[in-house]
Amino acid sequence: MRAALIGAFALMFAAPLAAADMPGVTETEIRIGNTTAYSGPASAYGTIAKTEQAYFDKVNAEGGINGRKIVFISYDDAYSPPKTVERTRELVERDEVLAVFQTLGTPANTAIHKYLNAREVPQLFASSGAKAFTNPEEYPWTFGWNPTLEDEGTIYGRYILQEHSDATVAVLYQNDDYGREVLEGLRIGLGDKADEMIVATASYETSDPTVDSQVVTLKNSGATVFVNIATNKAAAQAIRKAHEIDWKPVQLLNSVANSVAAVMKPAGTEASEGIISAAYIKDPTDPTWADAPDMKEWNAFMDEYFPDGDKNSILTAYGYAAAHTLVKVLEQAGDDLSRENVIRQAANLKDYVPPMLLPGVSVTTSPDDYGVIENMQLMRFNGERWELFGDLY
Results as ranks from 00 to 15, higher is better:
203 S>D: 13
26 T>H: 13
251 Q>S: 14
331 E>P: 08
388 L>R: 14
146 N>C: 13
216 V>R: 09
219 K>L: 03
146 N>F: 14
378 L>H: 00
147 P>I: 09
271 A>M: 03
156 Y>C: 06
40 G>I: 14
241 K>R: 13
52 E>G: 10
173 Y>M: 15
393 Y>T: 10
59 V>F: 03
225 V>F: 15
137 E>V: 14
117 N>H: 14
78 A>W: 04
66 N>L: 12
107 P>S: 15
104 L>N: 06
358 L>H: 12
354 P>V: 12
212 D>Q: 07
360 G>I: 08
106 T>F: 05
65 I>C: 12
350 K>Q: 15
134 T>S: 11
182 V>I: 08
203 S>C: 04
8 A>M: 13
373 I>K: 01
110 T>S: 07
299 N>E: 11
25 V>I: 08
29 E>M: 11
112 I>Y: 05
156 Y>I: 08
98 L>T: 06
392 L>D: 04
113 H>K: 12
317 A>R: 02
159 Y>I: 10
31 R>M: 03
68 R>Y: 04
331 E>S: 12
109 N>Y: 01
205 E>F: 13
222 G>Y: 06
229 I>K: 07
119 R>H: 05
105 G>L: 12
73 I>W: 08
159 Y>A: 02
116 L>G: 03
219 K>Y: 13
385 R>E: 06
254 N>C: 14
375 N>K: 07
166 D>G: 14
70 I>Y: 11
220 N>H: 09
248 K>A: 11
275 I>M: 08
79 Y>I: 13
46 G>N: 04
379 M>Y: 07
190 L>P: 08
152 E>F: 00
244 E>V: 10
351 D>I: 00
125 F>A: 06
43 S>P: 03
1 M>Q: 06
